[in-house]
Design a protein around this nucleic acid. Sequence first.
DNA 1: AGCGTTACAGCAAGCGCTTTCTATACAAGG
DNA 2: CCTTGTATAGAAAGCGCTTGCTGTAACGCT
Lengths: 348, 348
Amino acid sequence: MTVTLADVAARAQVSPATVSRVLNGNYPVAATTRERVLRAVDELDYVLNGPASALAAATSDLVGILVNDIADPFFGIMASAIQSEIGGPGGRAGGERLAVVCNTGGSPERELTYLTLLQRQRAAAVVLTGGAMENEPHAAAVAAKLRRLGEAGTRIVLCGRPPAPETAAIALTFDNRGGGRELTEHLIGLGHRRLGYIAGPEERTTTRHRLEGHRAALAAAGIEEDPRWTVHGRYDRRAGYEATLELLRRDPSLTAVVAANDSVALGACAALRDSGLRIPDDVSVAGFDDLPFSIDVVPSLTTVRLPLAEAGARAGRIAMGREEPPPGGIATVRGELMVRGSSGAPRE
Amino acid sequence: MTVTLADVAARAQVSPATVSRVLNGNYPVAATTRERVLRAVDELDYVLNGPASALAAATSDLVGILVNDIADPFFGIMASAIQSEIGGPGGRAGGERLAVVCNTGGSPERELTYLTLLQRQRAAAVVLTGGAMENEPHAAAVAAKLRRLGEAGTRIVLCGRPPAPETAAIALTFDNRGGGRELTEHLIGLGHRRLGYIAGPEERTTTRHRLEGHRAALAAAGIEEDPRWTVHGRYDRRAGYEATLELLRRDPSLTAVVAANDSVALGACAALRDSGLRIPDDVSVAGFDDLPFSIDVVPSLTTVRLPLAEAGARAGRIAMGREEPPPGGIATVRGELMVRGSSGAPRE
DNA sequence: AGCGTTACAGCAAGCGCTTTCTATACAAGG
DNA sequence: CCTTGTATAGAAAGCGCTTGCTGTAACGCT
């Protein structure tokens, strides 16, 4: 029923081998023959059987992209950039590759299962984006899986994720610690001394690093941190809203709120406003990531810009072997402090 | 080098056939044998070869999700919902399936190529999200492709996209026209008579339908539309910003701006503010979609909520054959008008 | 003319799995 | 004790493609 290579071969009066070679273009075929074959392909509306060719050639054109939350622009932007370099239709790359975006939802099991699925498909490359879980057994399992994938010839790139030692993975890590520190230094510089911090989920590297940067800045300024000033929550606006109310309840004298990321900061702004506080007159707010909307909210958000698209594009190129990996397989991507309207000097 | 079924079979002292059956669980295997096989699988760290099994079984566990722009939460939210129902790891579905999110970037060629790639992979199902291009030859090509995919047994679902006649595709269409109309009726009801409209890219069904709804509302209210009041642009904030400036230049007396979607509305708000206009006191603004950030911006956005997640989930279930398609294969999903702070009565 | 090249094209052996059909073993029934 | 049925395992034939190797012309050289 379905058209096969052999059908095309018969129609073009050549052997299947020749058809295969025309299609793959990796072996000399006389122009007239090629023409004949292509015509037959066209006439029969032939489409290569992917699984069959993957099996025979022992390679596939699938590239996996793992993201924590595809509904979050942070990942969407990276995924988009990665994909554009992976090639796919219209990409600059030569061979057409199918980029597979896998949504782990931040769950370790799903991450692992997706990795297995990708391994099963003999993926050509895998890009893991975003922070990793710090759960020890899980981290070990992922490392083991990455090792096996690497051994099987799958190229592995981490984008916005800390390096995975003992692994062939190339890492493009965001300098979350540095960014966090710079951000808080900025607020301290404005005169803030009582700063609330809305952290992301615990056990996430991103969460920890940003928080560490924040604390380093406090320590450097000789500010002793009050444990009540830190609240953990998810990386979304809802969590930011609730955490801010909690923070306000614990210590109404806070003059600044630093959020784990821009979405959280958005929720924080809403909560402050609903509490009758003005931004930045009463309380300053800062985010992280500099997502597209951050410049449009009112007041616009002071944040740390992460070059998501650039990093993603680079990760994609490395995954495709079109760019040299950084020396040592590790590169740190720095953020840039964006001072905007949501931060100002504290009152009095 | 890599472990194969045969290796597992040898280790478990059974035939390859038995191992296959244990793994697929679709044939009776004695409990003790199964145990032995599973142990061997574990010990050898065996991972099924996807392409090989897809070839032999003539089916694959890939499900394609086509989106116009993965960096846009509109698509991210739908994709996320679809994927969660597709199964994938952790999903409710039984067999594990790999959801493949393909980013077409709104380009007809890429859409077609992705469809071919999916066809090549013998995808189990394909979900196309978002508006379609109204380019005739392209539409025909897509329809033809969908037909062939359907013939090959791939289930096809359109989510937020108009029905594709002559095709086996199930369509979950958004009522963009109705939503657009309701939105503009709301503004007219507030007293607005001079309304600017920032439309999306031309040749997109979504763009056209929303605009038609808007115009229907104007017509119903007996308002004659000035051609200067409509500007086309992309579906992002940048386009909204520029289009608004253009609108203001053309007719500074506008009292309301209706945007093609929330991102565009965000840009519109920024442009208005930068022009020294207050929202909604001087100019009202309305969006479409009700993305998560829309409630958090200041003033919060009047918009039409589209049940993106619900529709996506339903599309996913239908694609997996876990939910009955709607009668006739077509269902219309309605939006809900959300009146918020960005719209108010015009001055004087 | 003779011989080594070059340039294509075909043969055929798999790639690793699924699945139909067949074989075996044991239990139950007569 | 033999027949029939039932449960389970194996043998083997592909699935549709790629590719190393083997022709075989036609060509260029001396």
